[in-house]
Amino acid sequence: AEKTGIVNVSSSLNAREGASTSSKVIGSLSGNTKVTIVGEEGAFYKIEYKGSHGYVAKEYIKDIKDE
């Protein structure tokens, strides 16, 4: 099942092309942005936001229960 997560940073969080800190940054998400978690790979979540996919470090995403 898809989960919703909240970007848990004070400034912004980089979204990357792949599940690695050396992957190209494809965008950034500001704190408290809601994202859909579609998968996980190592220390990263694969997320969907406004129709695009990217990878973000798990430690900066807070899971919330689907309402």
Results as ranks from 00 to 15, higher is better:
11 S>E: 11
33 T>I: 07
58 K>Q: 04
3 K>C: 14
7 V>Y: 02
48 E>T: 09
24 K>N: 08
15 A>M: 15
56 V>H: 00
24 K>E: 06
55 Y>Q: 00
3 K>L: 10
28 S>E: 11
34 K>Y: 09
67 E>M: 13
15 A>E: 02
9 V>F: 06
42 G>M: 02
57 A>D: 12
48 E>Y: 11
61 I>L: 06
22 S>N: 12
14 N>P: 15
52 S>P: 00
17 E>H: 07
62 K>C: 11
31 G>H: 14
65 K>H: 11
42 G>R: 01
45 Y>I: 06
57 A>T: 05
38 V>A: 03
13 L>C: 15
42 G>D: 07
49 Y>C: 08
58 K>P: 02
11 S>L: 09
21 T>S: 13
52 S>V: 13
63 D>G: 08
66 D>G: 10
1 A>I: 13
35 V>W: 02
28 S>D: 06
26 I>Y: 02
16 R>I: 04
56 V>W: 00
7 V>R: 02
56 V>M: 01
7 V>A: 04
44 F>P: 00
39 G>H: 02
12 S>H: 12
17 E>W: 07
52 S>F: 13
4 T>A: 06
36 T>F: 12
56 V>A: 00
11 S>T: 14
46 K>R: 08
67 E>A: 13
16 R>W: 15
4 T>V: 11
11 S>R: 11
10 S>N: 09
56 V>E: 00
66 D>T: 12
50 K>R: 08
18 G>A: 14
39 G>L: 02
46 K>W: 07
58 K>Y: 03
7 V>P: 02
1 A>K: 14
42 G>H: 04
41 E>A: 07
25 V>S: 06
57 A>G: 09
3 K>S: 06
5 G>W: 05
25 V>W: 05
45 Y>F: 08
28 S>T: 14
1 A>F: 14
45 Y>L: 06
23 S>F: 05
48 E>F: 10
14 N>L: 15
19 A>W: 04
67 E>T: 12
7 V>Q: 03
18 G>C: 14
26 I>F: 03
26 I>T: 03
23 S>Q: 02
20 S>H: 09
17 E>F: 07
56 V>S: 00
15 A>Q: 03
23 S>L: 04
63 D>F: 14
2 E>Q: 15
49 Y>K: 00
53 H>R: 04
21 T>K: 12
58 K>T: 02
3 K>G: 04
52 S>M: 15
21 T>W: 14
40 E>A: 05
19 A>M: 05
51 G>M: 04
23 S>H: 07
51 G>L: 03
41 E>C: 13
52 S>E: 09
51 G>I: 02
27 G>E: 03
43 A>D: 15
21 T>R: 11
1 A>S: 13
49 Y>M: 07
42 G>S: 04
59 E>W: 06
1 A>W: 15
13 L>R: 02
41 E>H: 07
6 I>Y: 11
44 F>I: 01
17 E>L: 08
63 D>C: 15
14 N>A: 14
30 S>E: 13
12 S>Y: 12
65 K>L: 11
25 V>E: 04
44 F>H: 02
30 S>P: 15
28 S>I: 14
54 G>A: 15
36 T>E: 03
29 L>N: 00
67 E>H: 12
2 E>M: 15
9 V>Q: 07
22 S>M: 10
31 G>V: 10
28 S>R: 13
55 Y>N: 00
13 L>F: 02
64 I>V: 13
24 K>T: 07
19 A>P: 15
53 H>Y: 15
38 V>K: 05
63 D>V: 15
62 K>D: 10
37 I>E: 00
58 K>L: 02
47 I>K: 01
7 V>K: 03
62 K>L: 11
19 A>G: 04
39 G>A: 07
11 S>F: 07
36 T>A: 07
50 K>C: 14
14 N>M: 14
66 D>V: 14
32 N>M: 11
30 S>F: 11
41 E>F: 09
47 I>C: 06
9 V>A: 10
38 V>H: 04
1 A>L: 14
29 L>K: 01
33 T>P: 02
63 D>E: 14
33 T>S: 10
62 K>A: 10
50 K>L: 12
32 N>S: 08
29 L>T: 02
5 G>Q: 02
19 A>C: 07
13 L>H: 03
32 N>L: 09
5 G>N: 02
8 N>G: 08
30 S>W: 09
23 S>N: 04
25 V>F: 05
34 K>N: 04
4 T>K: 08
35 V>P: 01
19 A>K: 05
11 S>P: 11
41 E>G: 01
7 V>I: 10
2 E>P: 15
35 V>K: 00
50 K>M: 13
37 I>T: 00
13 L>I: 15
22 S>V: 08
22 S>Y: 06
29 L>D: 01
44 F>M: 03
64 I>G: 05
60 Y>W: 08
35 V>A: 01
22 S>W: 05
10 S>L: 12
58 K>H: 01
42 G>L: 03
52 S>Y: 10
25 V>P: 05
1 A>P: 13
25 V>H: 03
4 T>M: 08
58 K>F: 04
20 S>F: 07
1 A>E: 09
35 V>Y: 03
53 H>Q: 08
37 I>R: 00
50 K>D: 11
6 I>T: 08
4 T>D: 03
65 K>C: 11
66 D>R: 10
33 T>R: 05
41 E>W: 07
47 I>Y: 02
28 S>P: 07
18 G>Q: 13
11 S>I: 12
14 N>K: 12
61 I>E: 00
45 Y>R: 04
32 N>Y: 10
28 S>H: 11
16 R>P: 03
10 S>V: 13
2 E>W: 15
40 E>H: 05
57 A>F: 10
63 D>R: 09
13 L>A: 13
43 A>P: 13
41 E>P: 00
21 T>M: 15
60 Y>L: 07
